[in-house]
């Protein structure tokens, strides 16, 4: 079981990433594509967290003298993920704002019909 314990998060993360990419590839609705993007982002974030994760670890805070540094999870990925989440939110907000305006202009969110710019 240790294999699963060690790698379960990675499977989860890459599963999310693939699901996200797949949605972006096959869905034609802009909102669904944005949802796919969000899932992809989540997957990447989960992956980052799992890089620094230690099973049954503790928070990396020296609140007591007898804390064991090797039991602590790596704090850096968590900081990274916090930043990445913020960026992800900004992108998502931007995307949704553009989607709303796009719907006002085109009257549709079907990406197969929003093809004025090509070639």
């Amino acid at each position: 079981m240790s294999f699963l314990e060690d790698y379960a998060y990675y499977f989860g993360a890459f599963g999310l990433i693939f699901i996200g990419l797949l949605i972006m590839l096959v869905k034609h609705n802009l909102i669904k594509v944005i949802i796919g993007l969000s899932i992809l982002d989540t997957g990447v974030n989960l992956f980052l967290i799992s890089v620094g994760y230690i099973s049954n670890g503790t928070a990396p805070i020296f609140c007591r003298d007898d804390m064991d540094p090797s039991r602590m999870v790596d704090p850096v990925p968590q900081a990274l993920v916090l930043t990445a989440i913020v960026i992800g939110v900004a992108v998502l907000a931007m995307a949704l704002a553009i989607a709303v305006r796009l719907y006002q202009r085109y009257g549709t969110l079907d990406l197969r019909k929003i093809k004025e710019l090509r070639w």
Binding site: I17, G20, L21, M24, L30, V33, I34, L37, L40, D41, V44, F47, L48, V51, P77, L80, A84, I87, V91, M94, A95, I98, A99, R101, L102, R105, Y106, I114, E116, L117
Partner: peptide
Amino acid sequence: LEAAAKYLIQGAVGSALLLMGIGL
């Protein structure tokens, strides 16, 4: 708007890949 939407989707995929690489 159309260009921005397409740019955003591709750019976001790109940065997700970048972030994954950085994580690795």
